[in-house]
């Protein structure tokens, strides 16, 4: 039991922190510009593919630097020439634009790299077990993932709370108009935020590619879960995003490890049903099964009852 707890926690941390890397960028964009960027996970996918291509020629490490930069530049360009252009057509058009962009990037990736899964591998230097507990290895690469995510959290937190740019960003989040009237170039800040946000997604892609496999559907898999984190964490709250990410990461890994079913609960009260009862699916419902539903249930409940999210200051 102890080993399950330890490893489930570790697995949950890895997933959660990876989600956080994605969500941190999206939170930044969402809270400043009010746009839920549907294509955010697509930039994550682009990060993985760019890094894969770079790794074919130069190895993993240059990819870790080059790919996020490329993605960030691409993101900034999308903001400058796409979003800003669509902005005049209204809020719905912006959402639809990012949605269309997500669709388009997925097709573009299939065009450029093909439909099959890419053999994007982690660097050999990290291909060893970090430690072994109860006969089970914890790969060094996952340790590296945890390290990078935490570094990003600390870095972002420092920038936002300690620097001048951070102050402007904070102000732009809560009072965009006031910041603009103070003479700051708000469009430029937006473009920068979009670039940095997508670059962060790119980092997540580079790091997750070897673990979660690099394939054209990888954006779709994480796409909506990132929204859950941003909304649940609360608008403009980095800490909220971190908490929500960890919550969802741990939820997913523990749910698979612990096999509680409704049956077990009912058995406590001495109730049992036949296997051919027409609500059998309900009685045999187990934790691993309902795990994928929980994040979305959380999303809907938060939106209904606490639209500010866990730690948010403004409403969504």
């Amino acid at each position: 039991m102890v080993e399950i707890v330890i490893f489930s926690t570790l697995n949950g941390l890895v997933t959660g922190l990876l989600l956080f890397m994605l969500a941190s960028g999206l939170t930044l964009i969402f809270s400043m510009m009010g746009i839920l960027n549907f294509a955010h996970a697509s930039f994550y996918m682009l990060g993985a593919y760019f890094a894969y291509s770079v790794s074919l020629f130069l190895g993993f490490w240059p990819g870790l630097i080059v790919a996020p930069l490329l993605v960030g530049v691409l993101g900034a360009l999308v903001e400058r020439y796409g979003l800003r252009y669509v902005h005049k057509s209204g809020h719905v058009a912006e959402l639809v634009f990012t949605f269309g962009l997500a669709f388009f990037i997925e097709e573009l990736v299939q065009f450029a790299w093909g439909k099959e899964t890419k053999n994007y591998q982690q660097p050999e230097i990290l291909d060893f077990p970090l430690f072994t507990l109860f006969g089970q290895n914890f790969p060094a690469y996952k340790g590296f993932m945890i390290f990078i995510s935490i570094a990003i959290f600390i870095g972002l937190y420092q920038v936002i709370t300690r620097t001048r740019i951070g102050l402007i960003i904070q102000a732009a989040i809560s009072h965009p108009n006031a910041v603009s009237s103070l003479g700051h170039n708000v469009p430029l800040i937006f473009m920068g935020a979009f670039g940095v946000g997508t670059a962060l997604a790119g980092v997540a892609g580079v790091i997750a590619g070897p673990v979660l496999t690099t394939f054209p559907g990888m954006a779709l898999v994480l796409g909506s879960i990132v929204f859950v984190i941003v909304v649940v964490g609360g608008l403009g709250s980095l800490t909220g995003a971190l908490i929500a990410s960890l919550l969802i990461g741990l939820l997913q890994s523990y749910a698979i490890a612990l096999e509680f079913a409704v049956n077990d609960l009912l058995a406590l009260f001495d109730i049992s049903f036949d296997a051919d009862h027409f609500l059998n699916d309900l009685w045999t419902l187990s934790l691993p099964q309902i795990a994928p539903v929980l994040p979305y249930l959380l999303l809907v409940l938060i939106l209904i009852f606490r639209p500010t999210g866990l730690l948010g200051k403004r409403e969504t």
Binding site: G34, L36, H91, L95, S224, F227, V228, V231, D281, L282, L285, Q289, I290, P292, V293, Y296, L297, L299, V300, L303, I304, P307, E315, T316
Partner: peptide, 21 residues
């Protein structure tokens, strides 16, 4: 946005439920 997000959440929830029930 709130409506859009709720619709997304409900959609994902029902889709996930379809593999359970």
């Amino acid at each position: 946005t709130v409506f859009a997000m709720i619709s997304l959440g409900i959609g994902e929830m029902i889709a996930a439920c379809s593999l359970i029930f």
